[in-house]
Structure formats: C-alpha cells, structure tokens
Write a protein that binds this DNA or RNA. Sequence first.
RNA 1: GGUCCCAUCGUCUAGUGGCCUAGGACGUGGCCCUCUCAAGGCUAAAACACGGGUUCGACUCCCGUUGGGACCGCCA
Length: 474
Amino acid sequence: MRVRFAPSPTGFLHIGGARTALFNWLYARHHGGTFILRIEDTDRSRSTDEYIDAIIEGMKWLGLDWDEGPFRQTDRFDVYRDYVKKLVGEGKAYYCYCSPEELEARRQEALSQGKTPKYDGRCRNLREPVPGRTPAVRFRMPQEGYTVVDDMIKGKVEFENVQLDDLIILRSDGTPTYNLTVVVDDVDMKITHVIRGDDHLNNTPKQMQLYQAFGYPLPRFAHLPMILGADKTRLSKRHGATSVMAYHDMGYLPGALINYLVRLGWSYGDQEVFAQEELVRYFSFENVGKAAAVFNPEKLLWLNQQYIIASAPERLAELVVPFLLRENVISEGQPVDMGWLARAVKTLQERAKTLADLAKSLRYYLVGDVQYDAKAKDKFLNEKSLPLLKDLNAELEALSGFSHQELERVFRAIVEKHGVKLGALAQPVRVAVTGGTESPGIFEVLEVLGKEETMRRIGKAIAAIGENPPGKES
RNA sequence: GGUCCCAUCGUCUAGUGGCCUAGGACGUGGCCCUCUCAAGGCUAAAACACGGGUUCGACUCCCGUUGGGACCGCCA
C-alpha cells in the first residue's frame, strides 16, 4: 500500500493541504504502508524553493513524516517526455498548433454564448506541421462511452466521455502538464491509493484515460470533501489564517491542529479528543463523510486549550520561551530557571488557550516591576485593605515555610481576625503581586513567587497606598 | 452556461429502516463550585431543506425540487 501527498510549491502549506497530507499519512500508518512526499513543481513560473522549504517545515511541525522523497517533478522532465513520445508514436496524442491566445479567445467566445468551453479538435487530424509555430501535445480523449470512477468516499461516479476534453499534456515550451505528470509519477512510484481533495474529482476520468493509454492498472481513488470558510466558499486567506505555520506562530500545538483537522470530515462515534496512536488505529475511510466542512476557529481554540491542559508543564515551559521573547517578557540571553518556569506554567495551564496567552500571563511571574491596572488599584489597594496587607506582611515575615497550605492558614487567620471574607484580602494581594484582578489561585501564585518576592511586592503596594491615598469617600 | 459533488442544531458531527421523545462536541444563556479568572459539574435554547414515492414502519432507500459547493487553463 503506497500513498503520496503531492503539493505544488506555489504557496505555504495551508489548512486544506495539511488535511490531505494527514489523511494520506493516517491511511499509510494505519495499514503499515508507505507515505511519499512529492513536490509538483512543473509550473516553473510560480514554484519557488522557499515554498518547498515552507511546506516541508509545515509537515515536520505537524509530525507528518514521510518514507520516500521529497521528489521533485522538475528532476524528471526526461521521463515525462519519453511517455509523451510514446503516446504520440501510438497515435494516442497529437500535436496542436493553436496558440494560447487563440484558445483563450475561443474559450471566451464559448462562455459568452453560454456554451461549454471545449477544445474543438481542429488539430486532431492534422497531417502536416503548421509552419512558424511550436506545437503543444494533446491527448486524444475517447469521445464515446463512459468512464466510471469508483471512489472510496463518493462511491461510483459516472462521466460521459464526450464531456472530456483533449487535454494538453506537453506545453509548447516542452514542459509537461499536471494531468500527465501526476499519472506518470503515480505509475512510476507505484501509488496504490490516490487520496486528494474532491476538487480533483472532475480530473479523475481524464487521468483514468491516461492510465489506460499507458496500459497501467488503476489506483484506488478517495476524494476528500473540501474545507470551507464561514461563508461556505472554499477556504482562502480572506477567511483569516490559512497557513499551517501561522498557527504555530499563534501558539497552537501541532497535536491540536491535527486533532481538529481530522475531525473535519472524519469521526469516530462521539469521541472528540484523540491521541495520535488512536487516530492511526481508528482511521478508516468508512467514517469519512461526503459533505464539505466549515472551518471553525473557535473549536480549534478549545481543542488547543485541551491539549495545553493535558501537556506536561516542563514541555510547555520549553515551548513558551520563544513567545516570552516575542512578548518581551524575557530578553535574549536572559537565564531562566526552567524547573521554576515549569512550576509557574503549571498554575496557568488551564487558563491559557494558546502558548501566546501563556506567555502573556507569565509576565507577572518574570517581571518584578508590577504595573497596577488603574481600576484594580482603585478598588483593592486602598485604606480598607491597608491594615490587612500590613498584617499579612508581618505574618509572612514570621513564616518558616512558604507552601500553599501554610499561606492559606495565614490568610484565613487574618481575615478571621478582621472579620472579613477571604476575598477582602486575596484580591488586594492579587493586585499587589500581579497588577490585575485575574490570576491562578492566590496561594499558588505566592508559592511560585517565593517569600522574598511576595513580601517585596506587598510592601510596594503598601507604600503605594500611603503615597497616593484614594480620594474622597463615596 | 456545462459537468460533477453535497444536504441532521449557528458550526463540527453520531445515526447504515424500528433502539430517535434525533445523541455528542464547539459556541451561546442559566445554575453550582469559588479568593479573582479559568477549569470542572449540572442545565437550557438549538437540526433531520422541501415534495413525492418504496415499506407495516423512514433521518436512514429511490425520484424530483430547492439550496450550496467544486471544476471547466499551454495552474496544480
């Protein structure tokens, strides 16, 4: 069993391509087959090496490892020309001297008359070359009968051969076109299953005719439904981030993106979250739906959060460092105690939806100079909380340990003494140490911060209240 | 316009003729928990596009209508 992912390097690896790659990869891994990466770069004007690198980078980040390749079609032009020569020799293909401009004019003409644009076959039976023109080569498509695609997802799809166009297989500049190269390569690479987007379904009967012209056995086909944007049209940049690496940059975990993508079209009962091994074990085209799916960023975000919650804090600490640098929470070369960072991360895990969120929240752990949110300061750092904060710092001073349990005991004792609720102390402390009103449990935060830093920050808050007492009583 | 594909809550989906009073998930509302924010738990609103058949019985099968999408390149 051999499958391939065959992107053209005319852009970054995008969401749709990644899902196609993923389904190929899952099918190969499930059946113990071979997954091949092939770069379809026969369009030399639009393909670039940068995009090839970008696609590979995306594949690697997602963990979609391939067994053979990457192969490049531009390395194989001689092979394609031989196949074309053979077809021409057998009369299964012919030279066409129509110029691209003439063809385009005729196409527009047909379209404006509401007719189906189709090559009129005027060069089909030409005996002599047309002087002064370099011809392209067209495949002679059968014009009667039917071609039936037996698709693993869509079932039997029937095409009338008269509808099939004599497609160009070799351009007048001598380079081969997609419909030829894809067949030749799939044959050469002994691809057994062609898994791709259903935007290729209409090409399939033409390609089947090519297989037959070469006398090769057909692979199985599986045409995956498209991924759509919120407006139900084909997903594109208009719909926001579509490049896989953009999700990397936004702080998504590759496993989350994989998990999200696989559920777009595939399902396994009611299960939503899958370990990679489960995906490999359960994957089958039996459970792939036929309908196109709308890409829902909200659900992906939720899944990412689930993956962050389930991740080891140590792992997240490693992953978050680039985001800390980007957010200027730490600076290049600044030493960071990774064990301690992991402890800080652990307190924030379930409130971060992305690594970027996590980095932002980590700021008050790593930057000692706390900036108070104005509203929070007004509300919680005032005369009312002043005695409590003073009491607290005195008690903390006397504390030998600094664990969650010990801290809670001290807090409880102080609020009881003052006859107030825990929040009356916890919130002012929260503002004192984080600058704001939202954070993990206050005892966990203080425990990570440590005694010295905690007392310093509370002391600073006390000083701030003294310097800048709130205005009139309201 | 032609060809082809598709059709269950707003979105992703379960459902393979009786198990459906249509299930789960995201999102949304409410409640609980609670030192804040989350997470978690409970709960609510929310769908079989429509019309004909077939059948004792249709979300499930067939036909049509409507709606959406893809493709129609010397792009892939």
